[in-house]
Design a protein around this nucleic acid. Structure first.
Lengths: 247, 247
DNA sequence: CGATATTTCGAACCGGCGTTCGATCGCCGC
DNA sequence: GCGGCGATCGAACGCCGGTTCGAAATATCG
């Protein structure tokens, strides 16, 4: 971190931006290589020399692109979380049955985790970060979880989904989806797309309205939100007339 | 590992067994303390001195009870896995609807993970073990997963469950259940029993027969196994007449 | 009560790993 | 071309943490 981005004035030369672009690309390449090593050996076991080898440069040179190993992990996590948040926004904006939206969200989530191009599998090593960097990652992850929970709550209010406890249902949903990163190994007999499809199917199925026990409320989508919420239900408190999904 | 269990002959004295019993108890106490530290800080961050402090003895003295830090983790995992296998055996022997059996299995699984008395939360740190100790743990864990998958396959053959792919459904099921250990913190507003109940409910719901799409085959339990398996289904191959659950 | 084995502990060891140092090479602008 | 800045690297540093050492305290047995 000795001489990064000197920024000698408000306006850099035309070649300055070329430099910075090349630098950003190199950072991304390193990030990808590091993500691969993290996935293969876990964060704790992965060494800087190993990451450097995978990225094709020397260990010392890594420190011209990242301040520390923790920062590399932090960037991996932020990148993947940004992708997840983008998926979430798409799911919130989408119209149609909440189940279908959640299914697509789950599918994208799984793909984000197991696709090699992203360093998504490094999410679960949040505990490895020092508190300074961890805070931001945890906050972003919690915001994502709250968004998913909001979608689940919306589905419950609409009567499309069933759940005794939206928070627990959302966590089960996320668990089924997140777990994929623990066992999936690329190159197996199951393609990433196939896995994502099936796991998403399972994750949403656990949320769908029960048919045998409990109230049967499978219903056409598009019913006005906020209706069909029985007094005893655990759905969202307070009225949020304008918003469709709670934060 | 210098002078453990000298074993001076085929028959130990009466006080010998008292010693060994006390030793075993001390080992268990250390195991519990270590499990607590592992849960709180993660395996990599937990130090031997910290474990020793939690267990109430010096760091050096730990090595009179365990050969290494890895061995402590390994024992934690084996203990928890033994518990899980015991649950699995109960689920296999039980009669009645497969869904109910899986729900009870999931409930017991969650409780095993989040109850403090057991070091169950250390399962996910399997990658931290050196290959020698890891093999046995992974094998035992895989056997458990295969057992769950067998139960799922049985439910599918019986027509009580639906799944495009038993292996993926079982993994989603285990994911929803295992994830609990990542977020549950004792002392929150949700009791362990309540969490286990709801998460198990969700995990099984994802397996139950679809009502809208797909074939509807919710049916009274106890139907003979092996029937109702359509030719195209992905259920278990080959006949296993005597066994109800495949290995 | 001596002898032996077991438990305990403070202190030190040492290997690995994240990190830094100092120097060299190469690219870009004037 | 040449000056300077950024990129690169081999080597070394320093710390942290698992592990070991040697001895002292304690229990067990004849």
């Amino acid at each position: 971190m000795r001489h990064l981005a000197v920024n000698r004035g408000p306006e850099g030369g035309p070649a300055q931006v070329r430099r910075e672009r090349r630098r950003a690309e190199e950072r991304l390449a390193i990030l990808r290589a590091a993500a691969g090593v993290f996935r293969g050996r876990g964060y704790a076991r992965a060494g800087m020399r190993e990451i450097a080898l995978a990225a094709g440069l020397s260990a010392a040179n890594l420190y011209h692109y990242f301040a520390s190993k923790d920062e590399i992990l932090s960037f991996c996590q932020h990148r993947a979380l940004d992708q997840l948040h983008s998926n979430l926004e798409a799911a919130r904006r989408a119209r149609g049955p909440v189940g279908a939206r959640l299914r697509e969200l789950a599918r994208a989530h799984v793909l984000c985790l197991i696709r090699e191009v992203e360093g998504g599998s490094a999410h679960f090593e949040v505990d490895a970060l020092p508190s300074g960097l961890r805070e931001a990652v945890v906050a972003k992850r919690d915001r994502y979880e709250l968004g998913v929970r909001g979608l689940v709550a919306l589905g419950i209010r609409r009567g499309e989904l069933w759940s005794g406890e939206p928070a627990l249902a959302a966590r089960g949903f996320l668990g089924a989806v997140n777990w994929t990163a623990h066992w999936f190994r690329p190159g197996g007999d199951l393609s990433a797309e196939r896995v994502a499809q099936h796991v998403a199917e399972y994750a949403v199925a656990g949320l769908l309205a029960r048919d045998g026990t409990g109230a049967r409320r499978v219903r056409r989508a598009g019913a006005p939100a906020g209706r069909r919420t029985r007094p005893g239900a655990v759905a969202g408190r307070r009225g949020m007339r304008g918003r469709e999904v709670e934060d």
